[in-house]
């Protein structure tokens, strides 16, 4: 039985795709994710063209997946950031307006009470 695969050398593009993919996830960096995706695609096409001369399909696919995961994660982080940036000022404004509104409400109630008192006195 032979568990060891005798293979052609791993294409450097596949190794680069893997390294850049890992780095893009670790550093959450778009400029690393895009090269990882490009290297992954190039490595895969090179392996498909010359399967006898180049291997590393798994590494290329790993680089591709991590590159895409990084891009999606960064897009989601951007959307979340924009939503947060839009909602937080409104929430702060609402909180800061709350005591003022309460004060206005209380003043109104006092005014009504005074009016009623004066009306009753007469």
């Amino acid at each position: 039985m032979n568990t060891v695969q005798d293979q052609s050398p791993i294409t450097p593009l596949a190794i680069w795709a893997l390294i850049l993919g890992i780095a893009s996830l670790v550093f959450c960096c778009l400029p690393l994710a895009i090269p990882a995706i490009i290297c992954g695609h190039l490595a895969r096409s090179r392996i498909e063209q010359t399967p006898a001369a180049a291997s590393g399909r798994g590494m290329a696919m790993a680089g591709l997946i991590m590159g895409y995961v990084s891009v999606v994660a960064l897009i989601l982080a951007c959307i979340l950031g924009i939503i947060t940036a839009m909602t937080i000022p409104a929430i702060i404004k609402m909180w800061s307006d709350t005591p003022r509104n309460e004060c206005r409400g209380n003043s109104g109630q006092c005014q009504v009470a005074i009016t009623n008192q004066q009306g009753g006195g007469l």
């Binding site: 695969q5 293979q7 893997l18 590393g56 399909r57 798994g58 590494m59 696919m61 790993a62 997946i65």
Partner: peptide
């Protein structure tokens, strides 16, 4: 890193 030869199925 030989595990990458089985990347898709192990993943």
């Amino acid at each position: 890193f030989k595990g990458f030869d089985y990347f898709l199925q192990s993943f």
